[in-house]
Design a binder for these strands. Structure first.
Length: 511
RNA sequence: GGGUCCGUAGCUCAAUGGCAGAGCAGUGGUCUCUUAAACCAUUGGUUGGAGGUUCGAAUCCUCUCGGACUCACCA
């Protein structure tokens, strides 16, 4: 049972008064002929027409929206309402609607209420295009006051928001309130939708088929992450929420679907941070007869296309960095990048022990994990030395085999696989490789993986026999790709926390 | 999970051991072109929660809840 604040009690009192007067506070139907933007455009058009013919513009509209500000001035009142397309001012005057109706508006309507108002458009003395209200009605009463900000329009047209809802927890927990009072937050999610649409448009245009694979899986795989576990009662079996799409999408290549992609949710039962949420949106595609170099070329096209579609430019700003997404992006072999930044040539250290000693000798203050595999040490060098310097989009390619169990080795170089990651603004954007399609090699890698993780029960990975069975039928050579859509959104919109680009990020439950 | 920091009115924020405050919002009033409207008056608090130290705690201590940043983890 909700406990009401004093402000809410006042509004509940108003609801009772409305009911007593026989006024429905939540009518079933609303009417609107124009959005705020359409009404303003219609009036401007009528104005310019009137300028040539000499007539006064006549534009009758019915608007609907949420009250954001009320200014009562004796026998007139002003209000601003906001709808999905913007704001517009309402002008109430006793001359037209009568003193009684004006008092009714002043007394019974609050910021946050939804209102329907009809009248004709005009320009106020200060030039603002405004609705001259002849009739109005309540569409929905707001019981709880919105954490409403006040917008100040400066002389140069910039809008300063005062007392805006700012508490990051409250904004995420009550995203509905955040969205209601912060138009720029709504804009983030419009752009996010545009990003996903652009990705689809791009892949569709390249002949990829969008598919949907199981989220609820009897086995999980395709990434190194702990899964969420659940249980199916009727089947009497444990199930997992997927941690990647990879193994199912590649089964489709076995089935002769040559180019497939999926955009959907992955779930990883791991830490939460500014770039990690337990559920996140992933894009993966698999492309038969392509290799990682072709995937690289497609990646830079796809990301630059998306930026162009959504932002109208390929030059973006992230934190204080100016980043140019125009292809081609820089290509840097991982070995060279690590050598340049750390002074260590990983090819000269074929074992974990040798590489560990080299790191300690060269960088005594660094603390790599002495139990790490060679691949993990290389990953450590990458994140310590190289990653922070990769500001402009860069493909880092050729990765150690033992941290890439699903990727194919370079011909003649079994220690290294054909894999790349794209880095921008110092963080990883995507991960791709020439996919391993040799069922016997794959089985061997799974067994090796099992051995590597044996000590660490939490990261123990099941061997997916069905995936191997599929692969034994024959899988075409192919290139595969995965990208966090949330991360791409952060990059393109210059947002520095994943929570800013998720409508409802994971939060601890209240109380 | 570790470290650092934060939590005060519906919102934004003051008060650093000595009477819990301001602006906005709200309520009552003046006001027929305002726009962060203005002006006059006024309501509003278990200072996240529990315990402790003290003559006295928003302030210091312990525990706890929630969050931010950061580290670890995250093929």
């Amino acid at each position: 049972m909700a406990e009401y604040t004093s402000l809410e009690k006042i509004r509940l009192q108003k609801l009772e008064e409305l009911r007593a007067e026989g006024i429905e506070a939540y009518p079933t139907r609303a009417k609107r002929t124009h959005t705020s933007a359409e009404a303003i455009a219609a009036f401007e058009a009528a104005e310019s027409e009137g300028a040539s013919s000499g007539s006064t513009p006549q534009v009758q509209v019915t608007l609907a929206g949420r009250i954001r500000a009320i200014r009562v001035m004796g026998k007139i009142s002003f209000a601003h309402i906001e709808d999905g397309n913007g704001k517009i001012q309402l002008f109430f005057r006793a001359n037209e609607i009568g003193k009684e109706r004006l008092d009714f508006f002043n007394k019974m309507f609050d910021i946050g209420d939804f209102i329907q108002a009809e009248g004709d458009m005009f320009r106020t003395k200060t030039g603002e295009i405004t609705l001259h209200v002849h009739d109005f009605r309540l569409l929905a009463k707001s019981v709880s006051p919105l954490p409403a900000a006040k917008d100040e329009t400066l002389e140069d047209g910039t809008i300063v928001r005062h007392a805006a809802l700012g508490d990051p927890e409250l904004r995420a927990r009550q995203r509905y309130a955040d969205l209601a009072v912060n138009p720029d937050v709504r804009e983030i999610f419009r752009k996010r939708a545009a990003i996903i649409k652009a990705l689809r448009t791009f892949l569709d245009s390249k002949g990829f088929l969008e598919v949907e694979t199981p989220i609820l899986q009897p086995l999980y795989g395709g990434a190194a992450a702990r899964p969420f576990e659940t249980h199916h009662n009727e089947l009497e079996q444990d199930m997992y929420l997927r941690i990647s799409f990879e193994l199912y999408l590649k089964r489709l290549l076995v089935g002769n679907l040559e180019k497939v992609y999926e955009i959907g949710r992955d779930f990883r039962n791991e830490g939460v941070s500014f770039k990690h949420n337990p559920e996140f949106t992933q894009l993966e595609f698999y492309w038969a007869y392509a290799d990682y170099l072709q995937v690289m070329a497609l990646t830079e096209q796809m990301v630059s296309f998306t930026a162009q579609e959504v932002l109208g430019t390929q030059k973006i700003s992230y934190k204080s960095h100016e980043i140019d997404l125009t292809p081609p992006w820089k290509r840097l072999e991982m070995r060279d990048g690590i050598l340049e930044t750390s002074g260590i040539d990983i090819d000269e250290h074929k074992t974990a022990e040798s590489l560990f000693n080299a790191i300690k000798a060269k960088h005594p203050n660094k603390t790599p994990d002495p139990k790490a595999t060679r691949g993990k040490l290389i990953d450590y060098l990458l994140s310590e030395f190289l990653e922070p310097r990769l500001i402009q989009p860069t493909f880092l390619y050729n990765y150690p085999r033992d941290i890439s169990p699903l990727a194919k080795s370079l011909p003649g170089n079994p220690m290294t696989v054909e894999r790349f990651e794209a880095y921008t603004a110092g963080f990883e954007l995507c991960n791709a490789f020439t996919e391993l399609n040799d069922p016997l090699d794959q089985e061997q890698r799974f067994i090796e993986m099992g051995r590597d993780y044996e000590a660490d029960d939490a990261e123990k990975h099941p061997l997916d026999e069905d995936y191997l069975r599929a692969m034994r039928y024959g899988m075409p050579p192919n290139g595969g790709f995965g990208m966090g859509v949330d991360r791409l959104t952060m990059l393109l919109l210059d947002k520095h926390s994943i929570r800013e680009v998720l409508l409802f990020p994971a939060l601890r439950k209240e109380e």
